[in-house]
Each structure stands twice: as structure tokens, then as C-alpha cells.
Nucleic acid binder design. Structure first.
Length: 434
DNA sequence: CATCCACAGGAACTTGGGGGCA
DNA sequence: TGCCCCCAAGTTCCTGTGGATG
């Protein structure tokens, strides 16, 4: 019996192995990143030899392979550990293995965009490292941070071997909770009996550590590795490597690869973007029933990605921020081109009351407008209107229909938008005057 | 040229919901 | 049960400010 899922579940005419096209997939061989991989391996190998490990800061824009290289290194460490374990029984004379046996290496990878508090980072390290603790000894909240710190320090002290802590998007950690966490972690290696903790910070913001405590800053930045953006031809190599693994042999050609690479190269050589283009265009092509991927699909994919990203961001906004966005959108639909903070607040106030939501203070709304600006959903420029004060000039940066389309899916806005759409504002204004 | 508007945006504090520990 | 902690979201209080206006 045929179901609606069949055509999507059976191996497609174009895609054979979808996972390979995701940017989170780590291939066996990283193309065009051997220099960086070797640099990192060289720094970390001093730790493996038992010398005191350096901390490393890795810089590079999004999609330059920072995370991929770190995950690759992680895989290699796993390999080494397995090799050392296998050979230990026979009393190996292999010098590499010998070095490794003396200093087994373990590592944690933490994404600081997700775990962005001092407590969270420390608890994560504790829960993943401590061998003789059963899982999740440290609760996700409850303990004093100091206690988390001292107990993991104590356990690490007892344990043999080197510990590598990969902190991806380390800048997010600093924005959110200052340098407390890094202070703890960089301090850990100095207060332990032996040096055996190394922090590998990954950031796409070159200036994130400017305001850190100088001591933390210098300890953290002992070694620096910078990742340059990929060139178009390098991106093409990467795409070709993945396409061979992921796509049906004769369903794609060089032109498609070149186009994906060229479009991504325009966006600061972002490999993630390149892979997304290839993956989405293959999916679009398959869904359209095509048997070969052509350049037209790639162009469609580009439009699609753009829209998806924005929809995703808007959909994930907290309710109050959605109300602010709706206020800006409705004003704009009602014909106002440039709003100021006060006007947005007034409209926000009306909508929030219509929805029976709490009405927040102007200070909070001001902050939310700035956030919408940072997310690229609206543009908010601080201007001075002289006698008439200093404020932000606010303008929507996305299409109002897109906002409506996304917000209508939220049950909170469903009724309101289904009834009157974005044009309700004038009616409300008039009824308020009467 | 000082004034003063309408906020910007930092910082400390509060609230409410998660939890631990004795 | 009471007192301790963590954390995010929001509030309160605050000082700062570009430039049209009188």
C-alpha cells in the first residue's frame, strides 16, 4: 500500500546519503585545512608528551572549518586512545603509543551558545569527565558554583592524563557571564598539582577578549590559530568531496558545484553556506521530481535558504518580542515609514493589551528593538532629532507578509491575525479616539 | 550658546521557577 | 520544611547625549 511518505523515504533519484551534506558531518579527510589541523595538533601534542599544555584560541569567520577541525582532532584522539589501549596488552615499543599511554587524553566539546553560563560550563565538564562518577552527578542547577568548581578540580587532580576543553563560540560565554567561567578554567591549570588542562577556545569575533581580565586574556591566548575564509576553488573541492559520497553518481555535474561554491565564496567563503546550498538544492530537485540537479535548483535554494533563516529566527522569538515585531510591522503596513521608539512602544502597548499579555516597560521594549536590529529583522539607527530628543529610527528589514506568515502560526497571534490581518491598526486608533 | 527633549543604554535589583541539602 | 543556590526575564534607577531651538 502506498503512503504519502513513500516518495520521500525511498532512496531518492538524487540524494543517496543526506547526512553527508550536513555541515555537522565530519569527513575522514578535511580538505584545505591541513595547515590549521597540523598547527593545532602540534600544540596539543606537547600536552600529550606530558609537558604543560598551552591554551589555544582559534579565530575565523563562520564556515571556515574551526569546529570541523576541532571535531576532527577529537576523532583522532579517540583513535589514539584505542590504539594505545589495544597495544598496551602486548607491551608496545611504539614511541607514539608509549607517550600516549603515559598521558591518556580526554576531551569535552562544549558549545557556549547553548551552555552559556559559568555554572553550566563547569557542570558540563564535571558530568562528562569524571570517570568514577555516575552520570550527571552535578545537577543543572542547585549547587553553589564554587562547589562545582572545587569538586571537579579535586577529581581531575586525582585522575591521570590530559584534559582538553573545547569551548566553541567562547565569545557567547563572555557576553553572557563575563570572564568568570574563563577565570575559573584558566585558574584551574595553575592551581592543580600538575598542569593538565588545556582550553581550546573557538571564536569568530576577533575582539571578544578585549575586556577580559588581563590575566585570563594572556593565559587564554598563549597560542593563536587563525582560519582564513575558503576560496571559491577550495569550496568547490569540498563540495565535490561531499557530492561524491552523498549524491547519485550521474545526477550532478561540475556546473552545479561551481555555482554553489561561487555563491558561498561571495558570503565570506562560508563552507556551511556552500553545503546548505548543495543540500537544499538537491532536496528541491528531488521534490520537484527531477532526476538531475541543475543550476536553476541552486538559485531556488538560495532564495529558499534566505527565507527559511528569517522565518526560523522570527518563529523562535519570545512572545513579547514577537509583539514588538508585530507593532513595527503593523505601523509599517499602515503607511509609517520610519518609526521612533516611543511610537513603537505605544503600538506595542495596544497590541499587548488586545492579546491580554503583560505590558512591559519602555526600557524592556527599547532593548528588544535593539535585539531585533541585531538579528537583522529590523533596522534601528540611533539618531538625534535635536530639540525633540534622541531616539532610534526603526524600519522593518523583512517583508511584512513574511512576518504575518510566521506569526500566524503562533497560537497567541492566530486569532488576531486571522481576523484582521496586519491592517487592524487604523480601526483601533479610531475607536480609541471615539 | 546654553538648554532641553526623548530617549539610549549600563547596572543593580526583583521576581519566579528551577533545584540541593539537613 | 526552611534556607541555600542558580538563572532568565524584567524593572527601577540612573547618567549620558546630538543637535534644533529660543
Amino acid at each position: 500500500m502506498e503512503t504519502v511518505f513513500d516518495r520521500y523515504l525511498t532512496s531518492g533519484a538524487i540524494i543517496e546519503n543526506r547526512g553527508v551534506l550536513r555541515s555537522s558531518y565530519t569527513p575522514d579527510r578535511l580538505l584545505h585545512r591541513s595547515k590549521e589541523t597540523n598547527q593545532l595538533a602540534a600544540v596539543l601534542s606537547t600536552a600529550i608528551r606530558g609537558e604543560s599544555p598551552s591554551n589555544v584560541l582559534i579565530y575565523g569567520q563562520t564556515g571556515t572549518g574551526k569546529t570541523a577541525v576541532c571535531k576532527f582532532i577529537g576523532k583522532e584522539i579517540d583513535k589514539m586512545n584505542r590504539r594505545a589501549a589495544a597495544k598496551s596488552a602486548k607491551g608496545s615499543k611504539d614511541p607514539v603509543t608509549k607517550a600516549f599511554q603515559g598521558n591518556p587524553v580526554s576531551y569535552v566539546y562544549i558549545n557556549c551558545k547553548i551552555v552559556n553560563t559559568t555554572y553550566g560550563v563547569l557542570a558540563n565538564i564535571g558530568n562528562r569527565f569524571i570517570k568514577d562518577w555516575s552520570e550527571d552527578v552535578i545537577p543543572f542547577t542547585g549547587w553553589p558554583t564554587e562547589k562545582v568548581y572545587s569538586s571537579i578540580k579535586e577529581k581531575i587532580d586525582e585522575q591521570d592524563g590530559i584534559i582538553l576543553i573545547f569551548l566553541d563560540e567562547i565569545d557567547q560565554l563572555c557576553y553572557n557571564s563575563g570572564d568568570d567561567a574563563l577565570y575559573f578554567l584558566t585558574g584551574m591549570s595553575t592551581t592543580l598539582k600538575d598542569d593538565k588542562v588545556s582550553i581550546i577556545g573557538i571564536s569568530n569575533d576577533l575582539r571578544f577578549n578585549e575586556f577580559l581580565d588581563p590575566k585570563v586574556k594572556s593565559r587564554l591566548g598563549e597560542e593563536r590559530i587563525t582560519f582564513a575564509p575558503y576560496k571559491a576553488n577550495q569550496l568547490a573541492d569540498i563540495l565535490r568531496q561531499r557530492a561524491k559520497l552523498a549524491l547519485v553518481g550521474d545526477a550532478w555535474d561540475e556546473g552545479v558545484i561551481q555555482l554553489c561554491a561561487a555563491l558561498a565564496a561571495e558570503e565570506n567563503g562560508d563552507a556551511r553556506k556552500a553545503l546548505d546550498l548543495l543540500r537544499i538544492s538537491s532536496e528541491l530537485a528531488e521534490r520537484a521530481g527531477a532526476t538531475t540537479l541543475v543550476e536553476e535548483h541552486v538559485r531556488e535554494a538560495q532564495v529558499q535558504i534566505e527565507k527559511d533563516v528569517i522565518s526560523q529566527v522570527i518563529g523562535d522569538l519570545p512572545t513579547q518580542q514577537k509583539i514588538v515585531l508585530l507593532a513595527i510591522t503593523m505601523e509599517q503596513v499602515a503607511g509609517r515609514e520610519k518609526l521612533i521608539t516611543g511610537e513603537v512602544y505605544e503600538t506595542y502597548n495596544i497590541i499587548a493589551r488586545k492579546l491580554n499579555m503583560n505590558v512591559l516597560t519602555p526600557r524592556s521594549i527599547s532593548g528588544m528593538i535593539s535585539e531585533l536590529d541585531m538579528l537583522g529583522i529590523c533596522m534601528a539607527k540611533v539618531i538625534s532629532k535635536g530639540r525633540y530628543g534622541r531616539t532610534k529610527e526603526i524600519e522593518l528589514a523583512v517583508h511584512p507578509n513574511l512576518v504575518q506568515k510566521v506569526l500566524v502560526q503562533d497560537p497567541i497571534f492566530e486569532e488576531l491575525l486571522a481576523k484582521g490581518g496586519l491592517g487592524l491598526l487604523r480601526g483601533w486608533r479610531q475607536s480609541r479616539l471615539l
